[in-house]
Design a protein around this nucleic acid. Structure first.
Lengths: 200, 200
DNA sequence: GTCTATAATTTGATAGAC
DNA sequence: GTCTATCAAATTATAGAC
């Protein structure tokens, strides 16, 4: 455990943000959870809660990005990858009593119209996820435009499903969205550029 | 303008919740916006901020439900209705500088794991929207199961698109999700029970 | 029902010793 | 870098006059 105080602050903040969002999370609550001295927070993050928040958003985003990478690493079957990703998300949400869904969605909506630095952090993270997905789908023969359209649809289906599942406490909504997502990937691959070219 | 103090409190709260969520909205801020005396808030809502919050969530949900009803009133073409609904949402989000999206999504994520009364209010609203959509799709020949699956997918696409659009300030994401949503409705209608029966 | 004053607590942030 | 004491402001909520 070579975790530094700074790392513990970010990880504790990430956990609290995912569970209850930005505004409801107090600085005192963060340093308690991180077992860090109060003063250290302002030593590492002179910009206070907002700076720590931005760092946490970017860190959480990178963590979740690695998860996406793992599921789509096997390029051979993006349909299966999509199905498995949503299934794993549904299992996690259920097993964590509906707390562990998207690490930054709550904060993203809270700060979208109230803090531009934080809003940009969430936008950068979301965009990086889309770029990752784009690359995987491009490797399967989709054009840039087709890939981006598909990436956005998968993102929306997952985020919307997280919202619905957490509110209703029904993980089956995530599984339903996953079936639609897998079908969307299948349809996109069927109509991929190479297929269309062959048909003409 | 026969608005009562109670109505003004709820409407002001709805506006603030949509813009900045639950935790960031103070009671003082609410009564100021509603031009209501501070004491009146606790007169009409003895349960304080949480009770006012629950009433606001249900009121906002009913408002948005009426909007859904308007767009899907014409039963003849649910594909067009879906396309138009997403287009209107994209226009509204752009024209209101990315503030006016889902009235309760931010609050729903904030309270999902922190307040059961508020969580239930958001769950009831989401479920009521799904029931409305179910009924429209059932009228077009889908089975209960097919209709619910489609309703959930449209909900997720819209809510996810609202999140992505507000974070990135790009309304085209809502339009992209709308195209996927319209395609999902079209596909569902093509595979509706009656069609399948005819094919067999 | 309206309105003011204020209680009790918590908030984000700072100062300064070590 | 660590830790404590503390500030000023804001928070939800209540009491009680009108």
């Amino acid at each position: 455990m070579a975790t530094t105080t700074k790392d513990r602050l970010i990880e504790a903040t990430a956990e609290l943000f995912r569970h209850q969002g930005y505004s409801a999370t107090g600085v005192k609550e963060i340093v308690d959870a991180a077992r860090a001295p109060f003063g250290s927070m302002y030593h590492f993050f002179p910009g206070g809660k907002e700076e720590l928040g931005a760092a946490t958003i970017r860190w959480s985003g990178a963590m979740y990005g690695e998860l996406i990478e793992i599921f789509y690493a096997d390029t051979s079957d993006p349909v299966a990858a999509t199905r498995q990703f949503f299934e794993a998300a549904a299992d996690t949400v259920r097993d964590t009593d509906y707390t562990d869904a998207c690490p930054i969605a709550t904060v993203a909506l809270e700060v979208a119209s109230t803090s531009d630095p934080l809003r940009r952090a969430t936008a950068d993270v979301f965009e990086s996820w889309l770029v990752q997905l784009d690359a995987h789908f491009a490797r399967n023969g989709l054009t840039k435009t087709q890939a981006r359209s598909l990436s956005v649809s998968l993102f929306c289906l997952l985020e919307g499903a997280f919202l619905l599942a957490r509110a209703t406490r029904e993980h089956r909504h995530i599984r339903a969205a996953g079936r639609t997502a897998a079908a969307a990937v299948r349809d996109a691959l069927e109509h991929r550029a190479s297929t269309v070219a062959r048909r003409r």
